[in-house]
Amino acid sequence: MNMMTADSVRPARTPTDQRRLAGARRPVRARVPGAGALLGAGGAAASLLIWEIVPRSGVVSPKYLPPASEVLAAFVERLALQSFWTAVGDTLITWALGLAIAFAAAVVLGFLVGSVPLLRTFTSSTVEFLRPIPSVALIPLAVLIYGTGMQATLLLVVYAAFWQIYIQVLYGVVDVDPVAEQTARSYGLGRWSRARHVTWPSALPYLITGVRLGAAVALILTITGQLTIGSPGLGQSIDVARSSGAVASVYALILATGILGVTVNVGVRAVERRVLRWHTSVRGENTA
């Protein structure tokens, strides 16, 4: 839904916003069942056709842009190769491990720092300095420490994904409805119980937004790291294919990274829908 993409850069809505919005239903567009999917498939077919025609007609030299059929053939060929699947595996592992480390660190630190106002103020200037540093600027440092192994790329991935999640957790932890908090207190819920049953679910929409952003950024840096540092994975394969002049293979591998990106996004969305069933952003979609 476009509402969600528009939201993706901002933290999720605050509870008060949600409540205000909860009443307002978005108009339901009349549509033919399956029409969207059909239209999408048609669009994809048209793009492929253009991709086929442009190099064949010589508008762009096939040396730089092989026709779609050639790239697809190269792609299918790759699917049979052990080395391709090893590269995919390496890429996924680097991505998942980096995201997991970033997630764990961001949640623990975010909750800790977020719930202690003094600590929050104390660290904010440091955070504001470190956060905008582009991860790729750390490449020389990563190579210095870890050489060209997977850890070097991992460092970049963790660094980039961490901030995405951490910032969201920081917002989420303080966006607890005071009425909910007081209710919990009046029913005798202690500090730990409140953290678990009130603060955590209140912060969850923010956390998921952070994970969604973090997952995308993590994939970008995984490929970047492999491409520039030469850690094993799809990025490295692309570089190898390029240096051996296998242009169609380069495109086939790029296609593979694209498919990974889409899969990651779909996966995170599925998790989001499950975990935030109760949240306005999700339950609105169900009723529409």
């Binding site: 009425v179 007081q182 209710t183 029913y187 005798g188 202690g190």
Partner: peptide, 26 residues
């Protein structure tokens, strides 16, 4: 305590049963 803002006092992430049960679990 039954709060004036009852809508915000119920936890949206818990079912009705979960809401009633949480203090009892505690």
């Amino acid at each position: 305590v039954v709060f004036q803002e009852y809508g915000r006092s119920l936890f949206p992430w818990l079912t009705v049963q979960g809401n009633i049960e949480l203090p009892l679990k505690e």
